[in-house]
């Protein structure tokens, strides 16, 4: 402060700057734990992956499991459902991207890229949450024979792709892998 009066910085100038710096750094580093504690805690993250036995899910059946507090739809689709989805032109889709966490982020929303891949095209594993505002759509309903969200009327087809309504994206596909023919690891 008094640097304007004297040529040399005084001891008060030094104390002023040092105290100010300690205050700023102190406040910033103290703020961090208060923000950090709000993030998902260790027990929540520990539940980040699950293993599911799908041997009982026969053709045309669905299983809903909980992963990270969210419902995961595991559906063994009928050949008709697979064909319906395959025969839909990409141009008819509202969201042309697969939204599949196992593929590149720009993969097209073809039925193959939505399903569990070659040879496992009957399996559709996705996060059962409407991409509009987070409601859970009802299965095997709606205009396209897929899912229908009762909250705001979004409809999804048999590959979980958004077809009409306010939702902006296809239902998301979580990272997963088949450990064997009967076991899937999600997460």
């Amino acid at each position: 402060m008094s640097a304007h009066d004297t040529a040399e910085p005084t001891r008060r100038d030094f104390l002023y700057i040092a105290t100010g710096m300690a205050g700023v750094v102190g406040a910033a580093s103290l703020a961090w734990p208060f923000i950090d504690q709000m993030r998902p805690d260790a027990s929540t993250l520990a539940a980040a992956s699950i293993e599911v036995d799908i041997s009982s899910v026969t053709e045309g059946m669905s299983l809903t499991v909980k992963w990270r507090g969210k419902p995961i739809f595991i559906r063994n689709r009928t050949p008709k459902e697979v064909d319906d989805a395959k025969n839909t032109a990409l141009s008819a889709l509202k969201d042309p991207v697969a939204r599949n966490a196992n593929l590149a982020s720009d993969a097209p929303a073809t039925d193959l890229e939505r399903s569990a891949g070659e040879g496992k095209e009957n399996w559709l594993i996705m996060i059962g949450i409407c991409t509009h505002l987070g409601c859970i759509p009802l299965g095997e309903s709606g205009e396209y024979g897929g899912w229908f969200c009762p909250c705001h009327g979004s409809t999804y087809d048999t590959a979980g792709r958004i077809r009409s309504g306010p939702a902006p994206e296809n239902m998301a596909i979580p990272p997963y892998e088949f450990l064997s023919d009967t076991h899937v690891k999600i997460g």
Binding site: P40, T44, G69
Partner: peptide, 17 residues
């Protein structure tokens, strides 16, 4: 959203905060 919820969905941490 994860910061608000304290998780990936509304759950116990959300209710507590």
């Amino acid at each position: 959203q994860q910061l608000l919820l304290g998780g990936f969905a509304v759950d116990n941490p959300t209710l507590n905060r």
